[in-house]
Nucleic acid binder design. Structure first.
Lengths: 150, 150
DNA sequence: GCTTGACCTCAACCTTACTTGATATCGGAC
DNA sequence: GTCCGATATCAAGTAAGGTTGAGGTCAAGC
């Protein structure tokens, strides 16, 4: 049977808007087939792919990154438990490194509270070495390494 | 003396692009004066304001949120150590709550690795209750509470 | 007195992650 | 046979956070 799933069904199951799913197809995150009438036909595995997208987005990943991760999964066959476990492990590491980054930042901040300097050279908060907490790009020329005071 | 600082100077000191600083002015994050010729005149305190913006952005805050935080600071006088300490304390709490959220997420993920279910109803990762890790809005209809399996 | 660099404004463009609207077609119910 | 809901495409719009370019001005150096 596996007759395939309609976009509306997938939308209801994932909580995504139909338009979002179509957009994700454009972005290469899912590749549904088509029936004779031209309508998208999804497999159950696609729901998992989309679920993965949702989770990864919560973690702050850009769609491009998510696509890269998903490219490791088989498009043809349904992913196995081991496939997902591998992806989840990658997530775990990412989460760990974010926690580490934030912890570092917090410790520095503790040192800074009361200091109030926020000096570009002296303040530990500006140290560009811990990127773990960075999200997106921010200003283009972020964190230049100046050496005089202000 | 305090003759005021040019936008170029401030740009070099903060590492921001001149265009970014002008944009931040538009957004109300800084309010430089003008000289007779119409050029922006910044104070040293403005560098701190902008530094604050940079740090807050690293933490994933939107400019609107940052403006709100900065509105607590005096625009006229230079901020005191206590002013900054207050802001930093707010940061610390935000960082703490993010760490908590990520830790929760990691624990759940640990339970999920190997399970591979990613089921919308069963998988703990979908629990919408811990928003700490959320950044931006994500898909509009994120995390609907469906009750059947897939 | 003229050039040059830094500055000004304003409008347009960029990317990401979508939504919205117009217009058209498919296919099952009646 | 017709109607309706779900689907399709394509273009345009939205929001955030900026950058880029055109065209013009200011002030210091030679």
């Amino acid at each position: 049977m596996h007759k395939g799933l309609s976009i509306g069904f997938v939308a209801r199951r994932t909580g995504l808007a139909v338009s979002a799913i179509r957009y994700y197809e454009e972005e290469g995150l899912v590749q549904p087939g088509r029936d004779r009438g031209g309508r998208r036909v999804f497999q159950r595995g696609d729901i998992r792919r989309l679920s993965f997208v949702l989770i990864a987005q919560r973690l702050g990943f850009a769609l491009a990154d998510i696509r890269a991760a998903l490219d490791d999964l088989p498009q043809g066959r349904n992913p196995t438990r081991a496939d997902w476990a591998r992806l989840a492990e990658g997530f775990r590491q990412e989460i760990d490194s974010r926690i580490d980054g934030l912890t570092l930042l917090r410790d520095k901040l503790d040192g800074c509270i009361g200091c109030g300097c926020l000096s570009l050279d002296r303040c530990a908060l500006y140290n560009p070495n811990d990127k773990a907490a960075t999200r997106g790009e921010g200003p283009r020329y972020l964190m230049g390494d100046r050496s005089d005071e202000f």
